[in-house]
Amino acid sequence: MLHIKCPYCGMRSQNEFSYGGDASVKRPELNKEISDQEWDSFVYNRKSLRGKHLELWQHLSGCRQWIKVERDTATHEIFNTYKADEEIS
């Protein structure tokens, strides 16, 4: 079982969370000209990295906050968790 440290609630089991996908995907800026290619990439195309992967999770059965989790997709090791709006260096 994965244990995810919610930045608001502390260490909880994976059962309390739901997955939200790749956190590095950026929605195209609305006020600028957007090509079909950019929309494609935003909606469908994913790198799906093997190794360190920054991803969104929601603490659905807890505080219901969205958070970011840095996790290894090959080993399932979780390195760090962040608030959704936290800048990551």
Binding site: L2, Q14, Y19, E55, T73, A74
Partner: peptide
Amino acid sequence: DGYNSYAQRGNLP
């Protein structure tokens, strides 16, 4: 399991 993974190994939940 519901999250990206290359582990070929799952979890019990």
